[in-house]
Design a protein around this nucleic acid. Sequence first.
DNA 1: CGAATGATCGGCT
DNA 2: GCCGATCATTCGA
Length: 206
Amino acid sequence: MDKKPTRLGREFFTGEDVLKISRSLIGKYLVTRFEGQETAGRIVEVEAYRGPDDKASHAYGLRYTNRTQVMYAEGGHAYIYLCYGIHHLFNIVTAREGVPHAILIRGLEPTDNVPLMLRRRNMKKLQPRLTAGPGVLSQALGITTAYSGTDMLAADSPIWIEDRGAIIDESDIQAGPRIGVDYAEECASWEWRFYIRSNPWVSRAR
DNA sequence: CGAATGATCGGCT
DNA sequence: GCCGATCATTCGA
């Protein structure tokens, strides 16, 4: 915990196993810096989307559109899309170029510059609603679809992932079915959602 | 070109 | 617990 924060290197994101990378992301920090203001939170909940063979993925069957083309970029890019016309959902692209894997960040424990996050969310009081959920955490960090395609390994990237030295015990990580993917037939039951058990910053199932 | 649809959220009952 | 918001994207005509 005392370790100096280091940005995760490219090799963290280019692996083939998106489930393993998803688990490894738990406990890392998602950081943004816009107009000189940093905000950050500890990742406590993620979901894996494995391109070609996953019916829940926007890249199922290698579907390639203007929106999804960034999913085919090298691991470490940001895939951000608009959901329900309102919410900007933030994903991290993984795997080598051409393999459309992605990890959706669904829950964050706010850590850096909470007052600014509260302001962006139009909230007065700190409560899980601030960053528990993929749409709200993007709002709290100032992330919008305008940043989709960003290479988070670029030196001047406004969004990046940090390792602050915390070790998360595997036994504290719970797996379960992904949220909101009922349309994905047999893939809907795959337990590709990972989260820290009993953590208040994990999004609530509806 | 038109219609349908979401990897959700917050307010209201 | 339910329901409406709200629009980029996608697909089919």
